[in-house]
Every structure is written in structure tokens, then in C-alpha cells.
């Protein structure tokens, strides 16, 4: 007696192959869904916003009249914010990464820091807003300023930068460190002259991506009280400010649909800025990945 009924196998094969083919199509469809959404989203925003996107849009402050509304204050606010976030988060983040990768002993405290960082990455951004409101705005009396906002956002993206920098530092080959130590270099000389230069592309790529995350964030800045109607540019770190996402939020919340078009114009500017930042990150990655 045959254990395998060949005829049955053959007849089932047809259905199985059909099933495979159909489901391949289904899986492909689910994958394409994301692409379709992206296309619709970009198309809608472009068609809605392009009409308001002129030189005036960059020259004007916020206004009660849609045709006079501009993004000047928000645009420069975002730049100011970036000027605070970039150095603060990079210095602390890279410092943390070097400490963890090069100096920390494998003990409980180090494990604790590491777990803490990965948990911090999962805390909702609005909770960072509550932290910023209490600690920077109220306790340290920075007020609703660029500085308070920048520090809050720096803490928010710190975990992303630490993880990216750790990865970059870790990927520097052991042989390069050995070569340096064998020349009589001290630990810090080795880190400064060999490890960091080799890790810089990875750190920059991760840093820029983290920064672009910060530029698109809205909630924490709403919490610390970035203003929604600003008709001036920040003058120093303690000035009040607004940023592009908040300005967009403000326009989106207006009932008049004209303001929705203005919001779309703002979104175009925001997305363009993110696109530029991401392209720079990709360029850096490609340029240096060839060399190592």
C-alpha cells in the first residue's frame, strides 16, 4: 500500500499554488497601501498649499487674514530651536555613547543606564512636555522661551542620538584602536583621534535624523507654551517663539477652510526642510560607507 496518495497530492497542489499566488497579491497590496497613502497625502497637500506658497508667505507673520498669513516667525523659530537642540543633544548624546562604549565597566549601573535609555525612547513626547513645563519653564524659571523648548526637545531626542552614536562607535574596528594604543597613545587620545573621526559619519547621520524628528514635533512645545500667535522673531535664547508645526496646528484648528490651505502651504515648507535634512543624512551615509 502506498502511504502517499499521489493523485490527491496532485489535485491539492493546484489549490495550493493558487492560494500562494492570490496571497502574494494580497501581501503586495498591503505593502502598496502605504505607498498609495503617501502619494495621496503629498498630492493633497501640494495641491492645497501651492497657491499660498509665494515669497510673501515667507515674509509675513501670522495674520487673521489667510491671504496675509505667513510663516516667517515659525520658520525662524524652528531655526532658533534647532540651534539649541543640535549642540546640546549631540554633545550629551555622543558623550553618553562614548562613556557607555569605551569607559563603562560591565556592571549593573551600566546596564541600568542602557535600559533607562531604551525606556526613555518609548516615553510619549507629550510627557517630555510635562517635564519641560515643570523643570525648565517653572523650576529653572526659563519661561516659555526658545531655551526651555530647545532643552526639552534635546532630552526627547537624546535616546535616538545615544543609540545611533553607540552603534557608530561600536562599528569602529578593534584593530584601529589597537594600532593607536600600540603607538603609546592614551585612551582619550585614541578616542579623540581614531574612534571619533571614524564614527563621525554614523553619528552625523543619526544626529540629523534625530534633529528632523525634533523639527516635526508639536506636542511637547505646546506643553511648554510655545506661542501660537507670534508677530516677531526671537531675539535671544529667552525670547518667546513659535515653530512651524505649531503654526501649522494653529492654522489647521481654524474653522475657515482657507486657513487649511495656508496650513498645507506651511506643511510643504516643513516637509521640504525635512527632505533637505534627510538628503544630507543619506549623502553623508553614502559618501562614507564606501570608504570604510
Amino acid at each position: 500500500m502506498q502511504l502517499v496518495d499521489q493523485a490527491k497530492v496532485k489535485s491539492r497542489m493546484q489549490t495550493r499554488l493558487k492560494q500562494n499566488k492570490v496571497l502574494k497579491g494580497v501581501f503586495f497590496g498591503t505593502t502598496i497601501f502605504a505607498l498609495v497613502v503617501l502619494v495621496i497625502l503629498l498630492y493633497r497637500i501640494l495641491t492645497q498649499g501651492i497657491g499660498y506658497l509665494d515669497l510673501q508667505f515667507f515674509q509675513n507673520f501670522a495674520s487673521r487674514f489667510p491671504e496675509k498669513a505667513g510663516i516667517k516667525a515659525a520658520f525662524f523659530g524652528s531655526l532658533w530651536l534647532m540651534a539649541v537642540i543640535a549642540p546640546v543633544s549631540l554633545i550629551i548624546g555622543v558623550g553618553t555613547a562614548i562613556y557607555l562604549e569605551e569607559y563603562a565597566k560591565k556592571n549593573r549601573f551600566t546596564t541600568f543606564i542602557q535600559i533607562n535609555i531604551s525606556n526613555l525612547a518609548g516615553v510619549p513626547s507629550i510627557v517630555f512636555g510635562l517635564l519641560g513645563l515643570t523643570v525648565f519653564v517653572r523650576m529653572l524659571e526659563m519661561g516659555r522661551s526658545v531655551l526651555a523648548g530647545g532643552l526639552t526637545m534635546s532630552l526627547l531626542i537624546l535616546p535616538i542620538i545615544v543609540v545611533a552614536a553607540q552603534e557608530a562607535v561600536r562599528s569602529v574596528p578593534k584593530e584601529l584602536r589597537e594600532a593607536s594604543y600600540a603607538m603609546g597613545a592614551t585612551k582619550w587620545q585614541t578616542i579623540k583621534k581614531v574612534v571619533l573621526p571614524a564614527a563621525i559619519p554614523g553619528i552625523l547621520t543619526g544626529g540629523i535624523l534625530a534633529l528632523s524628528r525634533a523639527i516635526g514635533e508639536t506636542a511637547p512645545l505646546l506643553m511648554i507654551g510655545a506661542l501660537t500667535f507670534v508677530a516677531y522673531l526671537p531675539e535671544n535664547l529667552l525670547s518667546g517663539f513659535t515653530v512651524m508645526p505649531i503654526q501649522i496646528f494653529n492654522w489647521t484648528s481654524r474653522p475657515q477652510t482657507e486657513f487649511h490651505d495656508v496650513a498645507a502651504a506651511g506643511i510643504i515648507v516643513l516637509l521640504a526642510m525635512l527632505l533637505i535634512m534627510n538628503s544630507i543624512a543619506v549623502l553623508i551615509r553614502n559618501k562614507f560607507s564606501k570608504r570604510l
Binding site: 501649522i248 516643513l270 516637509l271 525635512l274
Partner: peptide, 8 residues
Amino acid sequence: LAGIPTIV
């Protein structure tokens, strides 16, 4: 898609 700000 993952990098688009939530306000958008």
C-alpha cells in the same frame, strides 16, 4: 512615511 510629522 515614518518620518512624516504627526501634525501633518
